[in-house]
Amino acid sequence: MSAALTTRFTETFGVRHPIVQGGMQWVGRAELAAAVSSAGGLGMITALTQPTPKDLAAEIERCRRLTDRPFGVNLTILPAITPPPYDEYRRVIVDSGVTIVETAGSNPEPHMEMFRSHGVKIIHKCTSVRHARKAEKVGVDAVSIDGFECAGHPGEDDVPGLVLIPAATARLRIPVLASGGFADARGLVAALALGADGINMGSRFMCTTESPIHDKVKQAIVDGDERGTQLIFRQLRNTARVAGNAVSREVVEILRDGGAFPDIAQLVAGSRGRKVFENGDLDAGIWTVGMVQGLIHDIPTCAELIDRIVTEAVSLIQNRLRAVTAEVPA
């Protein structure tokens, strides 16, 4: 049996390793979530990747056939002109017997009563200490705190993880997952040193054998570096970190020149981003990846990746850190 690290997170959520696969649109499907969970981490199905609640129920059942380990469902709540039927997605999660949910986007409070009454544990994704404290107050079981390095939406405060993570862990009583910029054992050990109880990885899990995206996208991440991302929607106060490509650069230029959302709506349509992952055309639309791509150099299986991270983390803790000499004044 491989090495293991026990933290408050692993004990609370019943997983072997303090490593979570982030919920990613178009990526968090059954095959990836099951592979992560089977390897001892916590895999996440992304609810809104499924076009209807009925499709989500089928995806949960597919994941259950692939693994007998705990897995969760990500439910991201964002403002929309025509919002998805969130109540129905919530009902499917409960009726399917899922016991772990990752909420993100808006305040999780409206979802708490249903989930808690059915024994569902909740991780809420935050980008600031104030939002994390609010989530703790309304009763979530853990928070995932996203530093500015992360893919997707890093918030508007621009605080990197090295500051944000210890700022959060110093003020929270519940388990904290460090998110944004994590890809290897060094990151896991650093997160633990900063007070976190585990790590949440998105981009790193995109580059695994079981990740359901085109091989050209995986190779682009491996070939990329930490400078290869673009911040879009800054002027709209809805900042998102995405891959730097022809589309994201055009979006930045339009908004910088005074454009409004209607001027870029067609460029940033989710259907175009989905084509990137399905067809491997890197300029078909915007697609998310974090600065951490500069630390991603291969495409292993989820089991190989998790085992490597945990084994090397244990070695770092037992050997590298003990090798540091500390002198204490008499």
Rank of each mutant, 00 (worst) to 15 (best):
A191T: 10
V140P: 00
G105C: 09
L5F: 00
A326V: 15
G152N: 06
P18M: 04
I213P: 06
G147W: 00
I199W: 02
I309S: 06
G139M: 03
I306Q: 06
T12F: 02
V189L: 10
I19W: 01
D263Q: 03
A178Y: 02
E327F: 14
E312G: 07
T76P: 01
L236T: 09
E226D: 07
R204C: 10
G40C: 04
A39N: 06
K275Q: 12
A246N: 05
D95S: 11
R272H: 15
D146G: 11
P70M: 04
R116M: 03
A269H: 12
L267W: 05
K275L: 14
N200P: 03
K218D: 09
L32V: 10
I93R: 11
F9H: 07
S271H: 09
I213Q: 08
R237C: 13
G105E: 05
R171K: 15
L194G: 08
A135R: 02
T169W: 00
Q266P: 03
T10N: 09
L194I: 12
E226A: 15
E304G: 07
I232L: 04
A326L: 15
D298C: 14
S271C: 10
L177G: 09
G152C: 13
A183L: 03
T311K: 08
I199K: 09
D257K: 15
A39S: 14
A193Y: 01
H214Q: 09
V324K: 12
I296H: 00
G294R: 03
C302T: 12
A246G: 03
A33R: 01
R173A: 13
D95A: 14
G273Y: 02
R91M: 11
R274A: 14
P79F: 11
L316N: 07
I264N: 01
T325M: 13
Q293G: 05
V247S: 05
E136I: 05
P300R: 06
E59W: 12
L321S: 08
A196V: 04
C302R: 06
V189H: 03
S37Q: 06
C150E: 05
E304W: 01
R173T: 15
G119Y: 02
R173M: 07
A178V: 03
L231V: 09
P212M: 14
R8F: 01
L66W: 04
G152E: 06
A313M: 03
L42R: 01
G23E: 05
A80L: 13
L282Q: 09
H111D: 11
V101D: 08
D157F: 15
A326E: 08
D263H: 14
D146F: 04
G147A: 00
M24V: 03
E312N: 12
A303E: 08
M1W: 01
A168F: 01
K275H: 01
G23P: 04
P329E: 06
Q50S: 12
R186M: 08
F13L: 07
G161D: 00
R186T: 13
A243K: 04
V98Q: 01
P51Y: 01
C63G: 12
V120I: 14
R62L: 15
P110F: 00
